[in-house]
Structure formats: C-alpha cells, structure tokens
C-alpha cells in the first residue's frame, strides 16, 4: 500500500520546468549578489546615525567611543565604536534584533533598529581613501 502510494507520487514532486525556474532564480540572485559586491566592500571611515530619517550625528570610526542615542530625552539605543567597528550594544525594544546584529565597518553597511527607527550607517566621505587602500 505504502509502496504503491509512493509510486503514484513520483513525478508529482519535481519536473524539468521546476528545475529551470529554480535555476533562473538562482542565477538572478547570483547576479544581484555580484553587482552588490561590486558597489560595496570598501572600508568606511565614519558612521552616521539617523533617527526617523533625520541625521542624529556622524562619528569617526577611528576613535573608540560610546554613543548614547536619545529620543525625546531618554536613551533608546547605545552604539559603541571599537577597533574601527560600530556595534549596537543596547536597545530598549523587545526584539533586540539590532543588538544581536554583528558589528559593522564596511562602506554602506547598516544596523537598523526598526521599532525606534534608528539607523547606523557606515560611510566613506573622503572617497579617495578607498583608492589608496587599493594601491596599498
């Protein structure tokens, strides 16, 4: 009975067309991945914190510091810069997704705290550094 059922089901699971569509999807993802890699990867020098789309402050990644991000007078998030990396260490939201996220240091990398609408983004204002890095 079981054997018979399995026989009936073969061919219901996967077809050539499925393979083609999956391969196409995989290819698109690969292309997106390569394109995005091209545009990023350079190391950044500053981290910009925005709250609700407005710039809260810009900080250098070169000096170790602890930034308390205050919204309406209360500290909601704490961003720590150490060893040229920015890491969100505290947040008052329940999900703590931004805290668990890894530290950022590359150009355009971001840490996002959705509940508080806080974004920390690494940027490289003096772009010529990147060329120097390549030359070195």
């Amino acid at each position: 009975m079981r054997r018979k059922e399995q026989m009936e089901n073969t061919g219901k699971r996967f077809s050539k067309r499925d393979a083609w569509l999956l391969a196409a999807a995989a290819l698109v993802i690969l292309v997106v991945f390569v394109i995005f890699r091209q545009f990023s990867g350079g190391s950044g020098s500053t981290v910009t914190v925005t709250v609700g789309g407005e710039v809260y402050g810009t900080y250098s990644l070169d000096e170790d510091q602890k930034i308390d991000i205050k919204i309406n007078g209360t500290v909601t998030n704490v961003l720590v810069i150490r060893d040229h990396q920015a890491d969100m260490t505290e947040a008052d939201c329940p999900d703590q997704l931004c805290v668990r996220q890894k530290a950022i240091s590359k150009d355009h990398e971001t840490i996002v705290c959705l509940p508080n609408q806080v974004v920390a983004e690494v940027s490289n204002p003096n772009g010529e550094n990147e060329l120097d890095d390549v030359a070195n």
């Binding site: 991945f33 990023s40 959705l114 983004e121």
Partner: peptide, 17 residues
C-alpha cells in the same frame, strides 16, 4: 521605507539567498 534609508538594501543579496 520605515527607516527612510535605502542602504538597507545592502542586505538584499543575503536575504535573497
């Protein structure tokens, strides 16, 4: 849209995979 920052799309390739 919520955070009004389009560089969040930096994570797009990883999320697609």
């Amino acid at each position: 849209f919520v955070v009004e920052n389009y560089y969040v799309f930096y994570y797009l390739p990883f999320l697609l995979i």
